[in-house]
Amino acid sequence: MLRHLFTLIWNRKRANLLLISEIFFSFVVLFGVGTVLITTAKNYFAPHGFNYEQVWRLEVRAGQNLKMPRAELDDVLRQVKALPGVRTVTLTSGNFPFIFNTNNSNLAYKGKKTPPANNYAADDRYAEAMQLHLREGRWFAPADDGSNHRPVVISQDLRKIMFGDGPALGKIFTYSEPGPNPKSEDEFQVMGVVDNVRMESDFSAAIPSVWLRLLPYDTTHWETANVLVRVAPGQGGELQEKIARTVAGVTRQWTTEVRVMDDDRLHRRRYTLVPVVGLCIMGLFLIINVALGLFGVLWYNISQRRAEIGLRRAMGATGAGIGRQFLGETMVVTTFGVVLGGLLAAQFPLLNAFDLPVQPYLLAIGAAAAAVYAITALCAWQPSRLAAAIQPATALREE
């Protein structure tokens, strides 16, 4: 039976070439859309590695052309910490989670360079505020004030890149291009390792990260201080107003903006979803057009082969057998298109395209193949029923 189907397909190779081409391009589109959706979903369900709930971010600004003496800044932070409902206050850098501000650099250990890693400045209370989970070692402490190298904490993925399965605590690394006059603060000593973090968006993958301890130096060169505040559950606008009044009341010249980190996350999620939704709509529109094209081509093929159908029915073929023949032909032609598309799709994991793991590509290939077979079977079902219903006397009389 299969050999007979191949013979029929070969005898109509020009018409079937169009079907194979449509199926091939349908597979490619579904593979691309599937890869994006599978990767996005996988990232969405992965843990963030920190707790963004009940965390607010503050941008404390000095007056125009003014700087921030460390003593005054510490006084402001103490008074904010003393407010009812505030649990932890920590200084950090301006690249807060979920905002469009990044700071990354390449690092090196014994000549081995890393891909770009996110750099975050953090003080001794950052891990408490963000509820990071330590896998090895410890977070920063006042005992690090006298360190000869700048204390850092790294994420697990960065640890694996730099040190593999070897020990990481106490190791010293640098920037990949430290510059002509490297300083001791540009040499980093690993104090701890935390879980991987996803601070870009809900749909982003984990990025290797390093937290550099804020040096205990005077801040008179600062015009803005970036602060994270963890608050008790249920706190809202009233506490935000108290924080703003407290900052303004200490110096009479400083101001602050209070933002909720969860709001930043939702805003970034909407921004990230726009291209994904657009890609899905384009893919769906293209697949609908391809399905309509397949349906029309199959319908036309049946109308052109009415004499053949009538002759086979006259020789004893059943209607169900005719229907299975047309459906089988369609599935064989579909297999040609899927195999060609699969060969193209297989190049992506082999070439490590877009730095994605192999699993999303394999899942997308399987999902695209299943979807293409389902679409072609659905498109061939009604024409196959029409072919099965053709009576031999009617078909032969028309000829």
Rank of each mutant, 00 (worst) to 15 (best):
V227F: 07
L228V: 09
R230A: 11
R230N: 11
R230S: 12
R230V: 09
V231R: 14
V231H: 14
V231E: 10
P233H: 04
P233D: 08
Q235W: 03
G236N: 08
E241G: 04
A244F: 06
R245H: 10
R245G: 03
T246A: 01
A248L: 10
A248Y: 10
V250R: 12
V250Y: 02
V250K: 10
R252S: 08
W254Y: 15
W254T: 05
T255W: 02
T256W: 06
T256F: 05
E257L: 06
E257Y: 06
V258L: 05
D262I: 01
D263K: 03
R265V: 00
H267N: 13
R269G: 02
R269D: 03
R270C: 05
R270G: 15
R270L: 15
R270W: 13
Y271I: 10
T272Q: 09
L273I: 03
L273A: 05
L273Q: 09
V274M: 07
V274H: 07
V274S: 02
V274L: 10
V274Y: 08
V274C: 01
P275F: 05
P275D: 02
P275Q: 06
P275T: 04
L279N: 07
L279E: 08
C280V: 13
M282V: 15
G283T: 04
G283W: 07
G283Q: 05
F285E: 09
F285T: 14
I288A: 14
I288H: 06
L292N: 15
L294G: 12
F295L: 12
G296Q: 10
V297K: 09
L298M: 15
L298S: 03
L298N: 05
W299P: 00
W299M: 12
Y300R: 14
Y300H: 14
Y300P: 01
R305W: 11
R305K: 11
R306G: 10
R306K: 14
I309F: 11
I309G: 14
G310Q: 03
G310N: 05
G310C: 03
R313Q: 12
A314F: 08
A314W: 10
G316A: 09
A320L: 07
G321T: 09
G321P: 01
G321Q: 14
I322V: 11
G323Y: 01
F326S: 02
G328D: 02
E329R: 00
T330E: 07
T330I: 04
M331A: 13
T334E: 08
T335W: 04
F336L: 15
V338W: 13
V338L: 11
G342P: 07
L343F: 13
L343H: 06
A346E: 02
A346R: 00
Q347K: 06
Q347Y: 07
L350S: 11
L351W: 13
L351A: 14
A353N: 05
A353L: 11
F354G: 04
F354N: 09
D355S: 08
L356G: 03
P357R: 00
Q359W: 14
Q359M: 13
P360E: 13
P360V: 06
Y361C: 02
L362G: 04
L362D: 07
L362P: 05
L363W: 12
L363G: 06
A364Y: 00
G366S: 12
A367S: 15
A368N: 09
A368P: 08
A368D: 12
A369C: 12
